[in-house]
Write a protein that binds this DNA or RNA. Structure first.
Length: 561
DNA sequence: GTGATCACTTAGGATGCGCGAA
DNA sequence: TTCGCGCATCCTAAGTGATCAC
């Protein structure tokens, strides 16, 4: 469907152009010299000197505050300079003097146009066609949905938190960067005309269909199957089965690490205290990271002295450890927890004679820890504790919070509360939605209005009752009945709103999705739904039901994690 | 033991879209 | 019919952990 046109570039070189419709490459292109790129002039994709394309990225991002960050600007300008030709290089020497407002306005206008167009259904149809053509593959004779079938487009790298590489240019992937993985006899997508794939291989030991190396960290990116696929589903099921095996031996492991706190060997004590944190607080393992390559974040094994404070006594509690560090995605973990005395004494020992930037567990890393865990249980690693503790917490909380005589909305609130307990345990946070305050106010106003309505209705009932007493006829009796019904309807509506308000307030800064999708054995939820006769659609949306199809089939109302 | 590489899961924010209220 | 909101989906970064070479 790509429409090709011919145009003339300023050097007198003839190139071909096309409107961008391509699903795999954005846009598709011929083999081009490195300094030549595409840009969009509002009508057509055109060739542009690379520098122009790069600078438009900056314009696109102008609304974000990070374009004011020094690191971002420095990295961006360095990479931009690399893309400039000699004329541009001598002209564009100072980022401060560059004004990107025009291009920024242009992209804002573009997004308005896109919004208007989306109503026309044209784009919707086109997206559907692309999905049908590129969004599926055949695996073991089953048509399976592919998760991320589009190659990542070029742009400026942001990263999360204080990332040292923010602002760098993420380069366009070319067919020559792409490795295709498929079976020998299969039909695989052909590269754009005049180009070649880097490689076509047939490795059935891995699950990816396409891979390429990204230029910011040099890591490998993959195209893989959707969570609804057989291969992902089976893996997911296995994960929860491993966690269930941990349930059987967790007592033994816990008493083991309590013993190890007394060990003569420092490395064993450290291992035991770290495992205690991972188990009790659901901390992540904490692999080492290369300095200067990523934001400075830590997990359990990579905690430094500066990340904890010890209080022999605080707020009436003994042996309190205060954690304050940035974890995955630079999300802050802050927690004050009383710990067992022996663990506390060990921590004091580990911190002796250390500088704040020294490792808390200097005799430990994730590979040592995981080797130890492997000996305790086949397939046990640090992350299994997170899965186990999350799922067992959900199960316990559901038991505790669900009261049999509550109605469905109230039961769902209980479910969300159980889910929330897990999200808090795993520290799954989100930024409070921008519209939070406003939407809370709107809801409160609705509640108030409903309350007024209720008192009006009650007054009306009273008067009609009095009326019925005097008149003693059928008609007035009927009025009383209708008004009674109206009241109970209003009461129910009010209750539902109040439940919703509580739920939303409690959810302000907590993300439930991550735990629901990755940590909670879906069979627990399915069993709960069956037990209390709650439609599973109230808990899992369509996508989630597809992902957890295996669990929907499997779990009965008496399922125990 | 160490570092590099690879494959895979887990993560939050941005964007898209459908639906109910006005 | 329009508007605004909230949930679903998309996107891709950032983790975990296995394996391999030295």
């Amino acid at each position: 469907t790509a429409r090709w046109e011919e145009e003339r570039y300023k050097d007198g070189v003839k190139w071909q152009f096309l409107e961008h419709k391509g699903p795999v490459f954005a846009p598709p292109y011929e083999a081009l010299p490195d300094h030549v790129k595409f840009y969009y002039d509002g009508k057509h994709m055109k060739l542009a000197p690379a520098a122009e394309e790069v600078s438009t990225f900056f314009g696109k991002m102008l609304d974000h505050d990070y374009t004011t960050k020094e690191v971002f600007r420095k990295n961006f300008f360095k990479d931009w300079r690399k893309e400039m030709n000699s004329e541009e290089k001598s002209k564009i020497t100072d980022l401060k003097k560059c004004d990107f407002n025009e291009i920024n306005d242009y992209f804002k206008a573009q997004s308005e146009i896109r919004k208007a167009m989306s109503k026309e259904q044209k784009l919707v149809k086109e997206n559907e066609r692309i999905l049908q053509e590129y969004g599926f593959c055949l695996m073991d004779n089953h048509k399976e949905r592919i998760a991320n079938f589009r190659i990542e487009p070029p742009g400026l790298f942001r990263g999360r938190g204080d990332h040292p590489k923010m602002g760098m240019l993420k380069r366009r992937s070319r067919p020559e960067d792409i490795i295709i993985n498929c079976s020998k006899d299969s039909k695989h997508p052909k590269p754009p005309p005049g180009t070649k794939w880097k490689e076509v291989r047939h490795d059935n030991k891995v699950t990816w269909l396409v891979s390429w190396t990204e230029n910011i960290q040099g890591s490998i990116k993959y195209i893989m199957l959707n969570p609804s696929s057989r291969i992902k589903g089976e893996k997911d099921w296995q994960k929860y089965e491993t966690a269930r095996r941990l349930k059987k031996c967790v007592d033994r492991i816990r008493s083991q690490y309590h013993e190890d706190w007394k060990s003569k060997e420092m490395r064993i004590r450290q291992r035991a205290v770290a495992l205690y944190f991972i188990d009790k607080l659901a901390l992540r393992a904490g692999n080492e990271k290369e300095e200067g390559e990523t934001a400075d974040t830590v997990g359990c094994c990579s905690l430094r002295v500066e990340h904890i404070n010890l209080y022999p006594e605080k707020d009436g509690q003994e042996f309190v450890v205060e954690f304050d560090f940035l974890g995955k995605d630079s999300i802050r973990y802050y927690n004050k927890v009383p710990v067992e005395k022996r663990a506390f004494k060990n921590l004091q020992l580990f911190m002796e004679n250390k500088a704040t930037e020294d490792d808390l567990f200097d005799r430990l890393n994730t590979s040592i820890l995981n080797k130890h865990l492997q000996e305790l249980m086949d397939g046990l690693t640090a992350k299994v504790f997170r899965t186990y503790n999350a799922s067992i917490t959900l199960q316990q909380q559901l038991k505790e919070l669900t009261s049999p005589d509550e109605n469905i909305p109230a039961k769902i609130l209980s479910y969300n509360r159980a889910n929330r307990a897990v999200a808090i345990l795993c520290n799954h946070q989100r930024a409070a939605p921008k519209t939070f305050e406003k939407s809370m106010q709107t809801l409160q106003a609705k509640i108030d209005a409903k309350k007024d309505q209720l008192s009006d209705a009650r007054r009306e009932l009273k008067s009609s009752k009095a009326d019925a007493k005097v008149r003693r006829d059928e008609k007035s009796k009927k009025t009383v009945e209708t008004r009674k019904k109206a009241i109970s309807r209003i009461e129910e509506q009010l209750m539902r709103m109040e439940v919703q308000a509580t739920d939303r307030e409690e959810n302000k800064q907590i993300a439930l999705g991550t735990s629901k999708l990755n940590y909670l054995d879906p069979r627990i939820s399915v069993a709960w739904c069956k037990k209390w006769d709650i439609p599973v659609e109230k808990i899992y949306n369509k996508t989630q039901r597809e992902k957890f199809a295996w669990a929907l089939d499997m779990a009965e109302d008496d399922y125990e994690f």
